[in-house]
Design a protein around this nucleic acid. Structure first.
Length: 474
RNA sequence: GCCCCCAUCGUCUAGUGGCCUAGGACACCACCCUUUCAAGGUGGCGGCACGGGUUCGAAUCCCGUUGGGGGUGCCA
């Protein structure tokens, strides 16, 4: 089974956004396809009520492209749509029926429950197995699970043995005649000549059923690999209801694709050596399914952010400026568009770059440069101005900055001298100036910002702060 | 209930019988640097779930217990 051409597949169902767990599974498949010269097949499993399908599908394709899985890459094939192959699925089911591997059953869900209650056992009791029912409306087609055991050879878990006695005769075709997931999935994998099925662990219980289907269809099963699921802080499988799982959302918040990819790969696997931050090329070279951990991994946003900070700081300033642009020119920006000055931002960029871990932190860090008036954080203002001599420092600074040379060093020295008169260190002295000009007590380096703001605007803001005390400054 | 999977610092992991006094990273704490905040540097806190074996030797192998997770649809 391993001498077939290497063909992997990623088979998401279009549910509206791209799940980080799906992204990791896709990446695992992709890394293998790339290194081994195999093919990565994208198949959209849209057989359920897939409303709005084209939109969701495009979302998946865009998200895959973002993490580097590009539809134009020679290793990429697809997308295929499962819904387009319904006839094949049904044809396969018919073959299974004709070969005696499947039979029709007319029991309703209620009837199955009643029988289960009466017998004290759970689930369907294979009641219709030998009733020889013909196909008919409302009748489902069930697979006749053979006696014996099914051994699944799994690249990450080894051999997993299932007693077929614990597997009930599952449904292949609904009463409406439409194919079920288990069947469609296998038939598609067979026709697409898939050699390796790499997917999340939640599918492991399905695997013996699917393997029996492969065999009943006269095919050699693929190599299986079930990777551990991603969990939340409560150690539950990541769910879209309570957890933040949309790749698109992280992208919009300014997580870099490279950082996301790198982080995702370290969940369940680790590059050799003491460094987790490694380029994709190294991942491709070293990733092995056999090395994937067996236990679930917590998707830790803090660590993702830390990775992202590393990637941001590794960029050139020019790259950083380019990546910042969408955030600075979006419609959500707090300043009037006409007041934004890219030249000013570019001057600040290097200082901002080493202070953010996500791109969306840029705007609140530089907003005071482009706002007509800074938004004053009242708590910070009150606290800073209550410090001994804070107001006096403010007053004196206004006077000194009237004539000071307008460069960062001079502004710093001037303020240092003023602070010295009150026996204050620069850290204390700059606080009232910072809050007066930026509105906050934290932010990027002050004097560099003042230079960009200009003397007039700086003085205006300093006086504005002073006037808050009633005794209009100047 | 039944079936299956899993178990190293709080978290992600290294570790495949002696190199382990269990290594790294994130987080946290302290200190240094410092113009606030970061970044950077130094140090610290903190773990092999438990009990039996096997072995000269067990985080590593076996069994059991406990604990967690996944599955159990005419969903995918």
């Amino acid at each position: 089974m391993s001498d077939r051409p290497l063909r992997l597949r990623f088979a998401p169902s279009p549910t509206g956004f791209f799940h980080v767990g799906g992204a990791r599974t896709a990446l695992y498949n992709w890394a293998i396809a790339l290194r081994e010269g195999g093919t990565f097949v994208l198949r959209i499993e849209d057989t359920d009520e897939a409303r709005n399908q084209p939109e969701w599908t495009q979302g998946i394709i865009d998200a895959l492209a973002w993490i580097g899985i590009d539809t134009t890459d020679p290793h990429f094939e697809g997308p295929y749509f499962q819904s387009a192959y319904a006839e094949q699925h049904i044809a396969a089911a018919t073959r299974l029926y004709e070969a005696g591997h499947a039979y029709y059953c007319d029991l309703t869900g209620e009837q199955i429950q009643e029988r289960a209650k009466a017998s004290g056992k759970q689930g369907y009791d294979n009641y219709s197995r030998d009733r020889g029912l013909a196909p008919g409306p409302g009748r489902v087609l069930r697979f006749r699970v053979p006696a014996g055991t099914t051994v699944v050879h799994d690249l990450v878990r080894g051999e997993v043995e299932f007693d077929n006695a614990n597997i009930e005769d599952f449904v292949l075709l609904r009463g409406s005649g439409s194919p079920m997931f288990l069947l469609a999935n296998v038939v598609d994998d067979v026709t697409m000549r898939i050699s390796h099925v790499v997917r999340a662990e939640e599918h492991l219980p399905n695997t013996p059923k699917q393997q029996m289907l492969w065999q009943a269809l006269g095919e050699l099963p693929p190599v299986w690999a079930h990777v551990p699921v991603l969990v939340n802080e409560q150690r539950k499988k990541l769910s879209k209801r309570r957890d933040k799982v949309a790749v698109e959302q992280y992208r919009d918040e300014g997580i870099l694709a490279d950082a996301m990819v790198n982080y995702l790969m370290t969940l369940g696997w680790a590059p050799a050596g003491d460094t987790e931050i490694v380029p994709w090329s190294e991942v491709v070279e070293h990733f092995r399914l056999e090395d994937v951990k067996h236990s679930p991994a917590f998707f830790d946003i803090k660590k993702l952010n830390a990775f992202n900070g590393e990637y941001i700081r590794a960029m050139s300033v020019a790259e950083f400026i380019e990546s910042s642009a969408p955030y600075l020119t979006s419609d959500d920006v707090p300043w009037p568009r006409e007041l934004f000055n890219p030249v000013v931002f570019d001057e600040m960029a290097a200082l901002v770059q080493e202070r953010v871990s996500r791109l969306d932190e840029i705007v609140p860090m530089v907003d005071f440069l482009f706002l007509a008036d800074p938004v004053i954080d009242e708590a910070a203002f009150t606290k800073v101005m209550a410090a001994p001599n804070a107001v006096a420092v403010l007053q004196e600074t206004i006077g000194a900055y009237e004539t000071a040379e307008w460069d960062a060093d001079a502004l710093k020295e001037t303020l240092e001298a003023i602070g010295a008169g009150y026996e204050l260190k620069l850290g204390k002295t700059q606080a009232p100036i910072r809050v007066a000009v930026t509105g906050r007590s934290v932010g990027p380096p002050l004097f560099e910002a003042l230079v960009l703001l200009g003397r007039d605007e700086t003085q205006r803001r300093l006086r504005g702060a002073l006037s808050r005390f009633g005794d209009a400054g100047a």
